[in-house]
């Protein structure tokens, strides 16, 4: 059994106005990778390269043991893919789509498909054209889930969904992970979704992966230190500080490699440490992007 489901090595793709630069990562089997980035950062391009729909200019991509894009047909037999811009055939019914997918994938699970229909509140005789946006997303997801793929690749699956539908979708994704042989990669600009269910987190901005780690380490590394300075004290400076905010006497330091010694160092430099705040993934993401763009982090 291959324990790495997705592997990118130095993958690049050049467009006149955008470059995906040196993308490398590994996704272990049985885990969820949350792929976060602003719009236009390269999430979809990366995912399309993963699917073999776009061919990389350089670098190697292996998916479920298959080299992409050459062996995409074999790889895609075990992949369920849903992207935000994917549409089903408007004139055909949900049931027709299910029958079509079922004829292709030998592992199609009809009872599971039926239960998803019920939970997603979709009827097989409904035409795709008559569905709401949320229902269309859920129909596409149903087609991807019920083929029981070893790898689920979801490009912005929760975008435009109402809170109830979002929780339903996240719940189904987690249910997939009950099987240790299944792997999920999903992109989102909704950091709450990613924070809730991801094991691995990868940040992308302007075509580069700017940070990547397991989620717990991510949340552990980043802290905000709220300080109080006396008028004659100087702002403590040490390595690992990626951002300074707040006001002159009440500075707030942001670090991406927190260690308890930082608190004592601040005290040694004459500052009062008022609080050490944990940060949400969203705050971490924004701080990360800002500090990279400002050049504090390379």
């Amino acid at each position: 059994m291959n324990s790495i489901s997705v592997q990118f090595e130095g993958v690049g793709k050049h467009y006149p106005d955008f470059t995906l630069d040196n993308i490398s990562f590994e996704l272990p089997t049985g885990s969820i990778l949350g792929f976060i980035g602003p719009n236009g950062a390269g999430k979809s391009t990366t995912i399309r390269i993963l699917m073999g729909l776009i061919h990389q200019d350089q670098g190697a991509v292996r998916v479920l043991g298959h080299s992409m894009p050459e062996e995409q047909a074999a790889a895609k037999l075990d992949i369920g893919f849903v992207s935000e811009d994917m549409r089903l055939y408007g004139a055909a019914t949900v049931g027709w789509h299910m029958e079509f997918i079922r004829s292709i994938y030998p592992r199609w699970d009809q009872p599971y498909a039926a239960s998803l229909l019920h939970r997603f509140d979709i009827k097989p005789q409904q035409k795709i054209r008559g569905l709401s946006h949320g229902q269309r997303v859920k129909a596409a997801l149903l087609l991807a889930l019920a083929r029981r793929p070893r790898l689920l690749v979801l490009d912005e699956p929760t975008t435009g969904l109402d809170p109830v539908a979002r929780q339903e979708v996240l719940g189904e994704l987690m249910a997939v992970l009950a099987d240790e042989e299944r792997t999920i990669l999903f992109s989102s600009h909704n950091t709450l979704d990613v924070e809730q269910i991801s094991d691995q987190i990868m940040f992308i901005d302007r075509g580069r992966i700017i940070d990547s780690d397991d989620k717990e380490s991510f949340l552990d590394r980043w802290r905000r230190l709220r300080l109080v300075l006396s008028p004659d004290a100087v702002l403590p400076r040490f390595s690992g500080i990626v951002g300074v905010g707040g006001s002159g006497l009440l500075p707030v330091l942001t670090t991406n490699c927190f260690e308890p010694r930082m608190v004592s160092e601040c005290r040694n430099m004459g500052a009062i440490v008022q609080a050490v705040d944990t940060m949400t993934l969203e705050e971490i993401f924004v701080a990360n992007v800002q500090s990279r763009r400002e050049g504090n982090l390379v």
């Binding site: 699917m51 073999g52 729909l53 894009p69 995409q72 047909a73 074999a74 790889a75 895609k76 037999l77 992949i79 893919f81 992207s83 811009d85 994917m86 549409r87 089903l88 055939y89 408007g90 292709i104 596409a140």
Partner: peptide
């Protein structure tokens, strides 16, 4: 109609 990504997500290559 953006159904191309649905079709190309199936186990096929450009040949099929």
């Amino acid at each position: 109609e953006q159904t191309l990504s649905f079709v190309m997500s199936l186990p096929i290559s450009y040949k099929e």
